[in-house]
Design a protein around this nucleic acid. Structure first.
Lengths: 166, 166
DNA sequence: CTGATTGCAAATGCTTTGCACGCCA
DNA sequence: TGGCGTGCAAAGCATTTGCAATCAG
C-alpha cells in the first residue's frame, strides 16, 4: 500500500517533469505511516522526530504537491487550522463528524448521502465535482456524565476544540 | 426584519451584560442591508463606504459577537478565507454549492439531506449539533462552451476561485 | 462612577517567497 | 549542464491583543 503510494507519486512527478527527492520521499513515508489527520506543523514535528531534516518551507511545498496529486486532501475540521487527510485514497468519498466537546474526529461513509448529494447537485443544474461534509455533534454519553469521555484526553493533548476561536 | 435583528442583538447584549454601541448597530445594519456573504475585509470596506468609522479591530470583535449570538455563521467556501453568511436566520439549515470555475455560490436547502445527516449522526452514536456541507461542482454549460458563464465576470471582480491557493 | 468598548499599533501565527546554493536527470 | 528543489530568513496576510482613552448604563 505504501509502496503503491510511492508509485503514484513517482508517476505524478514524472508526468509533471518534476524531480524525485529524498525530502519528498521522507514526507510521504511519514504521512502514510499511519492514517492520522495532521497539520503542517504536526507533520514537521513528526519529521524531526523521525530524523528528517526537511524544512518547514519544503513541508508546505510538498503538501501542495501531494494535494495536487490527489494523494492527500485538505479538510475543514472547523477549528481554523489547515488539516490534511491521508485516507482519501482508500475511501474517496468519506466524510467527517467532529465531537463538539472533545474535538474527536470520526470518519464515515454513506452511499445514500453520496447519492443524494449527486441528485441535489444535478437538480441545481451542476455537475458534481466533490463534496465536503462536516457534522458537528455531541456524543450521547454527554447527557449522562456531563462530559465527553475523550474530553480530558483531548485537553491533555492540547487539541484545539471546534467552536473555539483561532 | 432588520428591525427584528436589532431586537435579537439587543436581547443578546442585555443577557450577557454587554453594551449597545453605535459601532455594533452600524455593523449589523450594513451586514443585513442585503443577503450577500462577506469577508471581514469586505465588510470593513462597505462600512467605510457607508461613512462608518468603525475600526478593523471592532469589525473582528463584532463578527465574533454576532456569531456567538447566532445572527451570522462562519462558512467554509473552500477558498481559505473566513466568510460570513447572514442568511441562517431565514434558512437555518441551508447549504452551499460552489462553482469550481467561477466561484459562484448557490445556496440550497434539502429536507432529505437534513434528515439523512441526522440519521447518520445518530447511528454513529452522536447527537446532531450542526452540519456544514459544501458541494463543489461545475455548471452544465461548461461542457459546451468550455467556460462557466459567470467566469469572466468573476475574474473582473477579482474573486478568489476555489482550489486556488491562498 | 465603573467597567465595557473602542482605536491604534504592535504582536501573533501560519504560510509564502526571494535568493543563493546544491543536486537530480 | 540546466534548471528544479531546498533551506534560510524575510515578507505577507489575516487576525488578535495590550493599552490608554472613551463611553454606556
Amino acid at each position: 500500500m505504501e509502496h503503491d503510494i510511492r508509485e503514484r507519486l513517482d508517476a505524478f512527478i514524472k508526468k509533471k517533469g518534476l524531480r524525485k527527492t529524498s525530502q519528498r520521499d521522507e514526507i510521504v513515508d511519514i504521512i502514510f505511516a499511519n492514517d492520522e489527520h495532521f497539520t503542517p506543523d504536526e507533520l514537521f514535528d513528526r519529521l524531526r522526530s523521525a530524523g528528517s531534516r526537511a524544512s518547514r518551507a519544503t513541508v508546505y511545498r510538498t503538501l501542495s504537491l501531494l494535494s495536487e496529486a490527489n494523494l492527500i486532501h485538505e479538510i475543514d475540521l472547523g477549528d481554523g487550522q489547515t488539516t490534511y487527510d491521508p485516507n482519501f485514497i482508500d475511501r474517496p468519498t468519506h466524510n467527517h463528524l467532529v465531537c463538539v466537546d472533545c474535538g474527536k474526529v470520526v470518519e464515515f461513509e454513506d452511499d445514500h448521502l453520496d447519492l443524494l448529494n449527486d441528485c441535489v447537485t444535478r437538480r441545481l443544474g451542476y455537475r458534481p465535482v466533490s463534496q465536503n461534509l462536516r457534522i458537528e455533534a455531541a456524543c450521547e454519553k454527554l447527557r449522562n456524565t456531563g462530559g465527553c469521555p475523550d474530553l480530558l484526553q483531548a485537553r491533555l493533548n492540547g487539541k484545539r476544540l471546534p467552536n473555539r476561536k483561532k
